[in-house]
Simulated scan of single mutants.
Amino acid sequence: MAIDDLLDEHEQSERVLSWLRANGAGLIGGIALGLAAIGGWKWWGNHQLEQHGKAASEFQAAVDAVGAKDKAAAAKVKALPAGMYQTLAALELAKSQVESDQRDAAIATLQGIKTDDAAMADIVNQRLARLLIDAKKPADAVKLLAKSVSPLAIEVRGDAQFALGKADLARTEYSAALGKLDEASPRRRLLELKLTEAGGTPVKPEAKS
């Protein structure tokens, strides 16, 4: 190895040592921060798992209380953290209340559900609308489902219009719902009966060539 190479290596080593002397504290601090971040992320992950497990346990306890007709069931559902668990538990509570002929209580339960999930909100509104129709408040049901576009929601809106004595609007809604349903859907027959009752004539789907 040439002397020039040795000098170059020595010079490079000195430069590295000099850089470490100047920046060593910052480098070590950066490594420490990196390790702390990794540790913090692991802690956060474990914390999230722990919180999820706790929420799941509280949800199960609330659902069990609903199933057992526990008088404290409503309070347990209400005490759940806002989110999907509370929404699902509230739906179970409302169902139980309907089965126990507590329609007004079920309406209150469904009205208290707050969710940002569009699909879940549609289910909640459909169930609430059906109860409002049963409670002789079909106009409220129409208003509740005014912007809904799913076949089931449109069908319920048709039920509300029919309950209001607006057979023409009911026919429009039933026909729209039929147009959104698959030909093999088991709900088609029921919808066709509703359309006929409202004075309409079901249109047979065109045969595919």
Rank of each mutant, 00 (worst) to 15 (best):
Q126G: 08
K114P: 10
Q111G: 07
A106H: 06
I113R: 12
D140K: 11
M120F: 09
D104Y: 04
V156S: 03
Q86I: 07
F162H: 06
M120A: 14
G112A: 12
R127G: 11
T172P: 02
K136L: 01
L131N: 14
A89R: 08
A106W: 06
Q97F: 04
D101E: 02
R171L: 01
Q102F: 04
T109G: 10
K114Y: 10
E92A: 11
L132T: 11
V142G: 06
A141G: 08
T109S: 13
V124I: 14
Q102Y: 01
Q86M: 07
G165Y: 13
A170R: 05
K137T: 11
R157Y: 03
Q102A: 01
A90M: 01
A160I: 05
T115H: 13
S148T: 03
T109D: 03
A135V: 05
R157S: 08
I113Y: 14
D134Y: 03
Q126L: 11
T115F: 12
D116C: 04
G158Q: 04
A135W: 08
A89D: 11
Q97P: 00
K114R: 12
K143V: 15
R103Q: 14
R130G: 06
S96G: 01
V156H: 07
R171F: 00
L88V: 05
K114F: 13
G158Y: 02
L144W: 14
A119N: 04
T109V: 13
A108P: 01
D134F: 00
V142Y: 01
G112I: 08
L128T: 10
Q126N: 13
A139G: 05
L144D: 06
I113A: 11
A121G: 09
I107A: 13
M120W: 09
L164I: 10
V98I: 13
S96H: 01
D116M: 02
D159W: 01
G158H: 02
K143Q: 11
L131C: 09
S100F: 03
K147E: 06
L169F: 02
G158F: 07
D140E: 15
V142W: 07
